[in-house]
Amino acid sequence: MDISYYLIQTLNGIQYGFLLFLVASGLTLIFGIMGIINLAHGSFFMIGAYLCWWLTSLFDNLFLGILAGIPLAVFLGLFIERFGIVYLYKRDHLYQVLFTFGLILIFGEMRSILWGNEVQGVMIPEMLSGAIPLTDTQSYPVYRLFISLVCTALAAALYLVIQRTRLGMTIRAGASNREMVQALGIDIAKLFAIVFAMGAALAAFAGMVAAPVQSVFPTMGDEILIVSLVVVVIGGVGSIKGAFLGAMLIGLADTFGAVFLPHGAGVVIYTVMAIVLLWRPQGLFGRT
């Protein structure tokens, strides 16, 4: 239990936080802009991981697998939005919950039919399979650093798109006042489709890059969904900044929870959530 051990845990926590951010950012934008509670968002993560496993074995190359998987995920997101979510915009949250709950069942069974129920592994490509030695006995895998780097780049790109482009401006405006954006004559149907497909693709991408480190298994979507919901609650609905800070907080809390409280690790993140709620019921960056 020396410094390098804690360094490794911190890096792991940050890497997990980045993955959470990719899932939670889509979730929070879909809540904030479209007013939709999408429980099936975790399924995109799971589908991404299975796509990655399937395509990687098909092409025998992880990068090709991911490249081929992303358009599929975007298409799936567009399809679900156009033929499913579109009916939910004017409906109560209750029906959105049920509808997307039904979607989870369908996604889960489709996965079972197409790819089976077994736990699968994806090989880390050779060029990233090494480890950086930290001390005589401890080292840090290169692939995990790669995940963090890719996610940092993606988070930065997302930030630039949202802060600097016209699309990003519309998204920000939509998150703060949906009706006003509609009244200004912006094609809200197109905006919704873009936001949903982007969210689905981000979640699926997170599943793809996570596949080699955490293996591919049926319930991975449910697990990440719940944790991402906690992230969104902590960060505040509709806030990308909140999603980022929440994701890092939860990523680190979960990792260090497992270190210090091996038997109560699962409870730690919810305790963090409860504390934030007592302090700020609308989340760190939520509007009252």
Binding site: F31, I226, A274, L277, Q282
Partner: peptide
């Protein structure tokens, strides 16, 4: 007591999260 101070989407997510917390509690304990 913790959940009803919130409303709408928050309430849905928070009740889900607390149930999941108890789920994790029973799952982790030998």
């Amino acid at each position: 007591w913790l959940s009803i101070r919130t409303a709408g989407i928050y309430f849905i997510m928070i009740t889900l999260a607390f149930a999941q917390m108890l789920h994790a509690f029973f799952k982790d304990q030998h």
